[in-house]
Simulated assay, not measured.
Amino acid sequence: MTQTVRITDHAILKYLERAHGLDVDAVRRHMSGLAATAVELGAIAVTIESVKLRLRAGVCVTVLKPSWPAIRPERTE
Protein backbone atom coordinates (compact mmCIF):
# COMPACT_ATOMS: atom_id res chain seq x y z
CA MET A 1 0.00 0.00 0.00
CA THR A 2 1.28 3.47 -0.91
CA GLN A 3 1.66 5.79 2.06
CA THR A 4 0.21 9.29 1.67
CA VAL A 5 2.69 12.02 2.59
CA ARG A 6 1.33 15.33 3.82
CA ILE A 7 3.08 18.30 2.17
CA THR A 8 3.09 21.63 4.03
CA ASP A 9 2.50 24.96 2.32
CA HIS A 10 6.06 25.94 3.28
CA ALA A 11 7.45 22.87 1.51
CA ILE A 12 5.40 23.62 -1.62
CA LEU A 13 6.65 27.20 -1.68
CA LYS A 14 10.28 26.12 -1.27
CA TYR A 15 9.85 23.45 -3.98
CA LEU A 16 8.50 26.02 -6.43
CA GLU A 17 11.27 28.43 -5.50
CA ARG A 18 14.19 26.01 -5.63
CA ALA A 19 13.15 23.41 -8.21
CA HIS A 20 11.32 25.70 -10.64
CA GLY A 21 12.99 29.07 -10.10
CA LEU A 22 9.95 30.91 -8.70
CA ASP A 23 11.14 34.34 -7.55
CA VAL A 24 9.14 34.67 -4.33
CA ASP A 25 10.46 38.17 -3.62
CA ALA A 26 9.30 39.35 -7.06
CA VAL A 27 5.84 37.92 -6.41
CA ARG A 28 5.80 39.64 -3.00
CA ARG A 29 6.74 42.99 -4.57
CA HIS A 30 4.10 42.55 -7.28
CA MET A 31 1.34 41.78 -4.77
CA SER A 32 2.46 44.66 -2.54
CA GLY A 33 2.16 47.06 -5.46
CA LEU A 34 -1.32 45.77 -6.27
CA ALA A 35 -2.50 46.27 -2.69
CA ALA A 36 -0.78 49.59 -1.88
CA THR A 37 -3.63 51.96 -2.84
CA ALA A 38 -6.24 49.78 -1.14
CA VAL A 39 -4.19 49.81 2.09
CA GLU A 40 -3.78 53.60 1.88
CA LEU A 41 -7.56 53.93 1.56
CA GLY A 42 -8.15 51.63 4.54
CA ALA A 43 -9.81 48.84 2.54
CA ILE A 44 -10.20 45.35 3.99
CA ALA A 45 -9.81 43.73 0.56
CA VAL A 46 -9.08 44.45 -3.07
CA THR A 47 -9.95 42.35 -6.11
CA ILE A 48 -7.19 42.40 -8.71
CA GLU A 49 -6.03 39.86 -11.33
CA SER A 50 -9.00 37.53 -10.74
CA VAL A 51 -8.34 37.12 -7.00
CA LYS A 52 -9.25 39.01 -3.85
CA LEU A 53 -6.44 40.07 -1.51
CA ARG A 54 -7.66 40.16 2.12
CA LEU A 55 -5.98 43.01 4.02
CA ARG A 56 -5.53 43.54 7.75
CA ALA A 57 -3.51 46.42 9.25
CA GLY A 58 -1.47 46.93 6.10
CA VAL A 59 -0.78 43.22 5.61
CA CYS A 60 -2.15 40.92 2.91
CA VAL A 61 -3.18 37.96 5.05
CA THR A 62 -4.74 35.68 2.44
CA VAL A 63 -5.90 35.38 -1.14
CA LEU A 64 -9.52 34.47 -1.84
CA LYS A 65 -11.67 33.68 -4.84
CA PRO A 66 -13.30 36.95 -5.99
CA SER A 67 -16.81 35.71 -5.16
CA TRP A 68 -15.88 34.89 -1.55
CA PRO A 69 -16.69 37.53 1.10
CA ALA A 70 -13.74 39.46 2.52
CA ILE A 71 -15.09 38.88 6.01
CA ARG A 72 -16.96 35.92 7.39
CA PRO A 73 -20.65 36.48 7.85
CA GLU A 74 -21.84 36.46 11.45
CA ARG A 75 -22.85 33.03 12.62
CA THR A 76 -26.39 32.54 13.83
CA GLU A 77 -26.60 29.77 16.39
Results as ranks from 00 to 15, higher is better:
residue 64 L to S: 04
residue 60 C to N: 09
residue 73 P to D: 11
residue 24 V to P: 05
residue 17 E to V: 08
residue 28 R to T: 13
residue 64 L to W: 05
residue 17 E to A: 14
residue 36 A to D: 11
residue 46 V to K: 01
residue 39 V to I: 12
residue 75 R to N: 01
residue 62 T to Q: 06
residue 55 L to Q: 02
residue 28 R to G: 07
residue 22 L to R: 07
residue 6 R to T: 13
residue 43 A to V: 00
residue 73 P to R: 13
residue 64 L to H: 06
residue 61 V to D: 15
residue 59 V to E: 13
residue 71 I to S: 09
residue 77 E to V: 01
residue 60 C to Q: 10
residue 74 E to S: 00
residue 13 L to F: 02
residue 29 R to M: 12
residue 65 K to A: 09
residue 68 W to F: 10
residue 63 V to N: 03
residue 27 V to S: 12
residue 3 Q to S: 05
residue 68 W to P: 00
residue 70 A to M: 10
residue 15 Y to T: 12
residue 55 L to F: 09
residue 19 A to L: 05
residue 56 R to Y: 10
residue 46 V to L: 01
residue 27 V to L: 15
residue 22 L to T: 14
residue 7 I to W: 04
residue 52 K to V: 11
residue 50 S to Q: 02
residue 17 E to C: 14
residue 63 V to T: 10
residue 65 K to W: 02
residue 24 V to H: 10
residue 29 R to F: 13
residue 77 E to Y: 01
residue 36 A to V: 04
residue 6 R to F: 14
residue 54 R to A: 13
residue 34 L to Y: 11
residue 2 T to Y: 10
residue 1 M to V: 07
residue 19 A to T: 07
residue 71 I to M: 07
residue 73 P to Q: 14
residue 7 I to L: 07
residue 15 Y to A: 15
residue 13 L to N: 02
residue 42 G to R: 01
residue 48 I to D: 02
residue 57 A to K: 03
residue 19 A to I: 03
residue 14 K to A: 09
residue 19 A to H: 11
residue 30 H to P: 00
residue 67 S to D: 08
residue 69 P to L: 05
residue 10 H to K: 08
residue 24 V to Y: 13
residue 43 A to E: 15
residue 67 S to P: 00
residue 49 E to P: 01
residue 41 L to Q: 11
residue 55 L to I: 10
residue 64 L to N: 03
residue 46 V to A: 03
residue 68 W to E: 13
residue 26 A to K: 15
residue 41 L to G: 02
residue 55 L to Y: 06
residue 8 T to A: 13
residue 68 W to K: 15
residue 25 D to R: 15
residue 30 H to D: 07
residue 16 L to I: 07
residue 42 G to W: 03
residue 40 E to W: 03
residue 2 T to C: 04
residue 75 R to A: 04
residue 62 T to Y: 05
residue 61 V to I: 10
residue 2 T to H: 09
